[in-house]
């Protein structure tokens, strides 16, 4: 009898008890959230975008079936929706004198589910206060932008932003080092969020670029 019990225990413990319903490994390779795809007035974006501010912008978020909560926050408000419909549509009207001032007011959409990593979208709505265009080379992609730009890449990687004229620049707290020669600037992605404000020496116009550093998962 004892030998039978030992054989059963052996089979249970060393057969692996594998099944097809085992949880798959997490998709995100970065600690601070995976990117959330969205549409703004019919244009598709993934994760991060700088969009000219209008009276109304219709945001449409494609959610997974397991999404249980979406929180949309700005410098002024946080709108929390439990069990959101899919797709989730949010018409954004910038609140006058708070969300449409000369300062920055980033909109974040954070989607939470009990079974998947948090998804995040970040939007910088910018107005006429920033109007100097730039070429941004970020994480392997080069793009001509308007008065504001965004860049999301792993922490420490070197990125470039180029202007048509010589500029001076000031960073917010937590930014990586930036070096500008004339209108060519290179910077390292810092941890978390950071905004560099540029001003053209000839035109006096402003540009801002907001970066988000992704922290890789430890091996």
């Amino acid at each position: 009898m004892k030998s039978y019990i030992l054989i059963i225990l052996f089979l249970v413990l060393f057969s692996g008890c594998g099944s097809a319903s085992d949880t798959p490994p997490p998709v995100a390779t970065f600690k601070n959230a995976a990117t959330l795809p969205f549409m703004a007035d019919g244009v598709s974006y993934v994760g991060m975008a700088a969009i000219p501010r209008k009276l109304k912008t219709s945001l449409r978020f494609q959610l997974s079936k397991s999404a249980e909560r979406i929180v949309i926050s700005t410098c002024h408000r946080a709108v929390d929706t439990l069990n959101p419909p899919n797709p989730f549509v949010f018409d954004y009207y910038a609140v006058h004198l708070i969300e449409d001032t000369e300062s920055i007011c980033i909109l974040k959409a954070q989607v939470a589910s009990k079974t998947e990593p948090m998804l995040l979208a970040v939007i910088d709505f910018y107005g006429e206060e920033v109007s100097m265009p730039a070429w941004v080379t970020c994480n392997g992609t080069s793009l001509r932008t308007g008065g504001a730009s965004v860049c999301q890449a792993p922490v420490g990687l070197i990125q470039r932003i180029t202007f048509d004229e010589s500029v001076i620049v000031e960073p917010t707290e937590g930014c990586g080092k930036i070096e500008c020669t004339g209108g060519n600037c290179t910077f390292r992605i810092g941890t978390g969020y950071c905004t560099y404000v540029f001003r053209g020496l000839k035109s006096g116009l402003y540009h801002r670029t907001t970066t988000r550093g992704l922290t890789p998962m430890e091996d």
Binding site: S73, C75, S103, I104, I106, V169, T172, T195, R208
Partner: peptide
Amino acid sequence: GVAESVNLNDSYSDAKARL
């Protein structure tokens, strides 16, 4: 994340003033 938005807003105003 909500708190970060507010901090960035304040820090941006300071950076712009320095600029």
